[in-house]
Design a protein around this nucleic acid. Structure first.
Lengths: 343, 343
DNA sequence: CTTAGCACTCCTCCCTAGAGAGTGCTAAGA
DNA sequence: TCTTAGCACTCTCTAGGGAGGAGTGCTAAG
């Protein structure tokens, strides 16, 4: 374990580096972060910290920068929890006071507000819709041969799609089909639909067999393939503001990961319910983002359905402020969702 | 007007520059684009072309690069219309064969395919929903105190939103309200709703006055503020692949424009129905994108509702290929839309 | 254990010189 | 009159070298 003074030196170096992005020298630590000892003493401490793996030296005559292990120690032990400025708090609450109460626009708002107040990149992973329970399935008649197919699941997810309707099916029949489908599928997830469910439906609606089959296909496509664990990204351009990404190459490496939904899902698998998690540099398994840190959280939608939020910035990111922002936003979001869904 | 040989020289320079992004010298033109004359002759022609404003010289001992005027001449007179590769054609048609027929996912697909096959950035401007006619308004009962508010407009736009319902309103009453609202508002656009419409509705549904007022507010918010002339952007990271945007500064300038929806609308005001339009460099009024060119088109949704597509790349973009791609995609999209909407 | 002092290392910046690319001009040839 | 070879000239780009500066590690004294 590090003694008191080593901790203070480490903290000073990390905080200065977060601020300036420049290697920190012993003189700076001694002068700016009055520890009451000379730079020579600090130098000895720094040499020790380097040997222990908390610091690194870009080259012999440069100051030190934190290593992953250093950041980890900082996050776990040294970091003081920050509180958000009045302005940021106002911004967050303003965002959620809008009229629209759909999950989708709430998620959009979440991304926007987090990108704005942190100046990093935000990603959100939607819940596994395929595992939520179906609540209602309805065909809303639009014209003689088209209808709006609406699927609602328990956690307030609504998917819709315009479909062709055989001329032979009347408006009343559509109503009936809607009712039967809802009756048979309510409380089931898309994954739960089995052969026996299907044959039950066929029993009741044999007459419309083809149409039903097509509708169920569509249902599966809507909830399973297209929207399941959907990925949203925002604040992408923010990372161009970070000095570590001035060299296009690095920026491109990060973008190349973020542009692949699969990899984003992989990254966010780090998020665990109930707490904010910080993944620093090499702790992320994807190579291209090992110069980045990820701060992640989950938000609850309904009883046991979770979405995930991640904030991606340079390793040198302002951890305490970002954690505070994510905490606050997650809370506000969960509250609104709770109210909206009534769970 | 330029004589035959000057045109061929100009064309050679532009095409070489598009390929290499390097100033083109007289030797290169003479050798690679066999015009049957020596480099000295080409040099004279180039000096003439420069004097006439078609070419520019970065510095005395560099080759020439095209000016805006040069590109303009190339696009208007010299460019041969390209045809897309088999592979690209397949990619385009595959994209539109998916099941989902919503306008929104079609637009997403359009952006994706164009960004992929051109390697530039794509923006789409949705139609002015506020000016399309309302087709149906429906409350779909979800629970004792919530319903799904669905609004459909003639061009196949569907907006939805979960709303709270006073306990006092029953399922049957909701049905009635839906019918009355649809009856009064069908065929009107949001902009068309007048005081007299409102008082007509109040006449029929006075009992539910507060609820109706809230619903109409929401309607206006959904169609007018939130989704009207919506902006989609894709392929943002592509521009980092262009050599002219290696210096973060320039990339940031472009992003800063693209991130502001108002400016994108402004940019795309260049698009005119019926033809593909090319805006080169300074022809764009927004300063930050004067190093870029914009190729734009409109696509028809319904009878007289238009959306706009724009492809943004460096001035040195491959105009003929991009125009061909946009032409083809626009056609495919319009066809699908035609079929879907049945207009 | 702390600290002042000092030699040392290595990066960064700036300057210069040389190479290379491409030009414009000139004069000769068709 | 148009074309072309030849050549001097201009300007950029790159490599190399030295000065300056920041920061270190070590040593010896307090």
């Amino acid at each position: 374990m590090l003694d008191e003074r080593k901790q203070r030196v480490l903290q000073a170096i990390i905080e200065d580096y977060i601020l300036t992005a420049l290697p920190v020298g012993s003189r700076t630590v001694a002068r700016k972060y009055g520890l009451g000892v000379s730079s020579a003493t600090i130098r000895n401490e720094m040499a020790d910290l380097e040997e222990m793996g908390y610091l690194e030296q870009p080259h012999t005559s440069a100051g030190r920068i934190p290593s992953d292990k250093g950041y980890r120690f900082y996050v776990d032990w040294l970091m003081k929890s920050a509180s958000l400025s009045e302005e940021h708090l106002r911004r967050i609450h303003k965002g959620y006071q809008k009229k629209a109460r759909e999950i989708e626009s709430l998620i959009q708002e979440t991304i926007k507000v987090l990108s704005e107040i942190t100046d990093y990149m935000t990603v959100v992973l939607g819940p596994q819709i395929s595992r939520t329970k179906l609540e209602q399935i309805h065909f809303l008649n639009l014209s003689a041969n088209s209808a709006l197919f609406v699927v609602v699941t328990t956690v307030g997810f609504v998917e819709k799609c315009i479909v062709d309707i055989p001329e032979s099916i009347t408006s009343d029949e559509l109503e009936l089909i809607s009712e039967v489908l809802t009756h048979h599928l309510k409380g089931k997830s898309v994954e739960d639909i089995t052969r026996s469910t299907l044959s039950d439906i066929r029993m009741d609606l044999g007459k419309y067999q083809d149409f039903i089959a097509a509708s169920l296909d569509l249902l599966e496509y809507l909830l399973n393939q297209r929207k399941d664990e959907r990925v949203w990204v925002g604040g992408k351009t923010n990372i161009l503001n970070q000095p570590e990404f001035q060299s296009i190459e690095k920026a491109r490496a990060v973008f190349s990961v973020i542009d692949q939904e699969e990899l984003v899902r992989d990254l966010l698998s780090a998020a665990t319910p109930g707490s904010i998690r910080v993944s620093i540099g090499g702790e992320n398994r994807i190579e291209e983002v090992q110069d980045c840190s990820l701060i992640s959280a989950t938000f609850r939608i309904g009883t046991d359905t979770y979405g995930k939020i991640g904030i991606i910035g340079p390793k040198r990111m302002d951890y305490s402020h970002t954690v505070a922002a994510l905490e606050c936003v997650e809370k506000a979001l969960s509250e609104v969702l709770c109210r909206v869904i009534g769970a």
